[in-house]
Amino acid sequence: QVNIAPGSLDKALNQYAAHSGFTLSVDASLTRGKQSNGLHGDYDVESGLQQLLDGSGLQVKPLGNNSWTLEP
C-alpha cells in the first residue's frame, strides 16, 4: 500500500522509488517545479508512476532490470 502526499513531483517520485524498490533515472530539469497529486493505494510500478506523472506532460519508459526513466 502506497501513501504519498501531494506536492513536489521530485519528492513524490523519490518516495515511490524507495517504497517500491525500483531505480528511477531522471534528468532533474524534467521534473523541476512540477507538482504531483500524490498516490494512495496498491499499484504496480508502471501504473503508480503514470499516476504520479498525471498532468506533468512526462511519460514513463522502462529501461529493464527494474529501472525506469522519464521523457517528455
Rank of each mutant, 00 (worst) to 15 (best):
Gln1Asp: 08
Gln1Arg: 14
Gln1His: 14
Gln1Phe: 15
Gln1Lys: 13
Gln1Gly: 12
Val2Pro: 06
Val2Phe: 11
Val2Met: 08
Val2Cys: 11
Asn3Trp: 13
Asn3Val: 11
Asn3Tyr: 14
Asn3Ser: 11
Asn3Met: 10
Asn3His: 14
Ile4Val: 06
Ile4Ser: 01
Ile4Lys: 02
Ala5Gly: 09
Ala5Asn: 08
Ala5Val: 07
Ala5Arg: 09
Ala5Lys: 10
Pro6Trp: 04
Pro6Glu: 05
Pro6Cys: 10
Pro6Gln: 07
Pro6Tyr: 05
Pro6His: 06
Pro6Thr: 05
Pro6Lys: 10
Gly7Leu: 03
Gly7Ile: 06
Gly7Lys: 04
Gly7Ser: 06
Gly7Gln: 11
Ser8Lys: 07
Ser8Trp: 12
Ser8Glu: 11
Ser8Val: 04
Leu9Ile: 03
Leu9Phe: 02
Leu9Lys: 01
Leu9Thr: 01
Leu9Asn: 00
Leu9Tyr: 01
Asp10Ile: 11
Asp10Trp: 15
Asp10Gln: 12
Asp10Val: 08
Asp10Cys: 13
Asp10Lys: 06
Lys11Tyr: 14
Lys11Trp: 15
Lys11Asn: 13
Lys11Gly: 11
Lys11Leu: 13
Ala12Ser: 06
Ala12Phe: 05
Ala12Trp: 04
Leu13Asp: 01
Leu13Val: 04
Leu13Met: 03
Leu13Lys: 02
Asn14Lys: 15
Gln15Asp: 14
Gln15Cys: 11
Gln15Trp: 09
Gln15Glu: 15
Gln15Ser: 09
Gln15Tyr: 09
Tyr16Ile: 02
Tyr16Leu: 06
Tyr16Glu: 01
Tyr16Gly: 00
Tyr16Arg: 00
Tyr16Pro: 01
Ala17Val: 08
Ala17Trp: 03
Ala18Tyr: 08
Ala18Glu: 11
Ala18Phe: 10
Ala18Met: 12
His19Asn: 09
His19Tyr: 12
Ser20Glu: 11
Ser20Val: 15
Ser20Gln: 13
Ser20His: 15
Gly21Val: 04
Gly21Lys: 07
Gly21Glu: 06
Gly21Thr: 05
Phe22Met: 08
Phe22Ala: 07
Phe22Gln: 04
Phe22Arg: 00
Phe22Thr: 05
Thr23Met: 09
Thr23Gly: 06
Thr23Asp: 08
Leu24Cys: 08
Leu24Val: 07
Leu24Lys: 00
Ser25Ile: 15
Ser25Thr: 13
Ser25Gln: 14
Ser25Cys: 15
Ser25Tyr: 15
Ser25Asp: 12
Ser25Met: 13
Val26Thr: 07
Val26Phe: 15
Val26Glu: 04
Val26Leu: 10
Val26Ile: 12
Asp27Pro: 09
Asp27Phe: 05
Asp27Cys: 12
Ala28Trp: 13
Ala28Lys: 11
Ala28Ser: 11
Ala28Asp: 11
Ala28Tyr: 11
Ala28Arg: 12
Ala28Asn: 08
Ala28His: 11
Ala28Phe: 09
Ser29Ala: 12
Ser29Ile: 10
Ser29Cys: 15
Leu30Ser: 05
Leu30Gln: 04
Leu30Glu: 05
Leu30Ile: 08
Leu30Lys: 00
Leu30Phe: 07
Thr31Leu: 14
Thr31Arg: 00
Thr31Ile: 14
Thr31Met: 09
Thr31Pro: 04
Thr31His: 00
Thr31Cys: 10
Thr31Gln: 01
Arg32Cys: 15
Arg32Gln: 15
Arg32Glu: 15
Arg32Leu: 14
Arg32Met: 14
Arg32Asn: 15
Gly33Cys: 14
Gly33Lys: 05
Gly33Gln: 03
Gly33Glu: 07
Gly33Phe: 07
Gly33Ile: 00
Lys34Asp: 06
Lys34Glu: 09
Lys34Tyr: 08
Lys34Phe: 08
Lys34Ser: 02
Lys34Ala: 04
Lys34Cys: 10
Lys34Leu: 12
Gln35Pro: 03
Gln35His: 13
Gln35Arg: 12
Gln35Asn: 12
Gln35Lys: 12
Gln35Ser: 11
Gln35Gly: 06
Ser36Gln: 09
Ser36His: 06
Ser36Asn: 02
Asn37Pro: 14
Asn37Val: 09
Asn37Trp: 09
Asn37Ser: 11
Asn37Gly: 11
Gly38Glu: 02
Gly38Asn: 03
Gly38Gln: 03
Gly38Ser: 01
Gly38Cys: 05
Gly38Arg: 02
Leu39Gln: 01
Leu39Gly: 01
Leu39Ile: 08
Leu39Thr: 03
Leu39Val: 06
His40Lys: 12
His40Ala: 10
His40Ile: 13
His40Pro: 00
His40Leu: 10
Gly41Arg: 01
Gly41Val: 05
Gly41Pro: 00
Gly41Lys: 03
Gly41Tyr: 04
Gly41Trp: 04
Asp42Pro: 08
Asp42Leu: 15
Asp42Arg: 13
Asp42Tyr: 15
Tyr43Cys: 07
Tyr43Pro: 04
Tyr43Gln: 03
Tyr43Ile: 04
Asp44Tyr: 05
Asp44Gln: 06
Asp44Glu: 08
Asp44Ile: 07
Asp44Ser: 11
Val45Pro: 07
Val45Met: 06
Val45Arg: 05
Val45Trp: 12
Val45Phe: 12
Glu46Val: 13
Glu46Ser: 08
Glu46Trp: 14
Glu46His: 12
Ser47Trp: 05
Ser47Thr: 12
Gly48Pro: 01
Gly48Lys: 01
Gly48Gln: 00
Gly48Val: 04
Leu49Ile: 08
Leu49Thr: 00
Leu49Met: 07
Leu49Phe: 08
Gln50Asp: 06
Gln50Ile: 13
Gln50Leu: 12
Gln50Ser: 10
Gln50Met: 14
Gln51Met: 13
Gln51Val: 13
Gln51Thr: 11
Gln51His: 11
Gln51Phe: 09
Gln51Lys: 14
Leu52Ser: 01
Leu52Lys: 00
Leu52Arg: 00
Leu52His: 01
Leu53Ser: 03
Leu53Asn: 00
Leu53Ile: 13
Asp54Val: 15
Asp54Gly: 09
Asp54Pro: 03
Asp54Tyr: 14
Asp54Gln: 15
Gly55Phe: 06
Gly55Asn: 04
Gly55Trp: 02
Ser56Glu: 01
Gly57Val: 01
Gly57Leu: 05
Gly57Asn: 07
Gly57His: 05
Gly57Asp: 07
Gly57Ile: 02
Leu58Gln: 00
Leu58Thr: 02
Leu58Cys: 05
Leu58Asn: 01
Leu58Met: 03
Leu58Asp: 00
Leu58Glu: 00
Leu58Lys: 00
Leu58Arg: 00
Leu58Trp: 03
Leu58Ser: 02
Gln59Thr: 12
Gln59Glu: 08
Gln59Gly: 08
Gln59Phe: 10
Gln59Ala: 11
Gln59His: 11
Val60Glu: 03
Val60Asn: 01
Val60Gly: 10
Lys61Ala: 06
Lys61Thr: 07
Lys61Gly: 04
Lys61Cys: 09
Lys61Tyr: 07
Lys61Gln: 06
Lys61Ser: 06
Pro62Ser: 13
Pro62Gln: 12
Pro62Phe: 15
Pro62Cys: 11
Pro62Trp: 14
Pro62Ala: 13
Leu63Ile: 10
Leu63Asn: 11
Leu63Glu: 06
Leu63Trp: 05
Leu63Val: 09
Gly64Met: 05
Gly64Asp: 06
Asn65Pro: 13
Asn65Cys: 09
Asn65Arg: 07
Asn65Gln: 09
Asn65Asp: 11
Asn65Leu: 10
Asn65Tyr: 09
Asn65Gly: 11
Asn66Ser: 05
Asn66Glu: 04
Asn66Asp: 08
Asn66Thr: 05
Ser67Glu: 12
Ser67Asp: 06
Ser67Ile: 14
Ser67Tyr: 09
Trp68Tyr: 14
Trp68Pro: 02
Thr69Lys: 12
Thr69Phe: 09
Thr69Trp: 06
Thr69Gly: 10
Thr69Tyr: 11
Thr69Pro: 02
Leu70Pro: 02
Leu70Asp: 01
Leu70Asn: 01
Glu71Gly: 06
Glu71Asp: 05
Glu71Phe: 11
Glu71Thr: 11
Pro72Gly: 08
Pro72Asp: 07
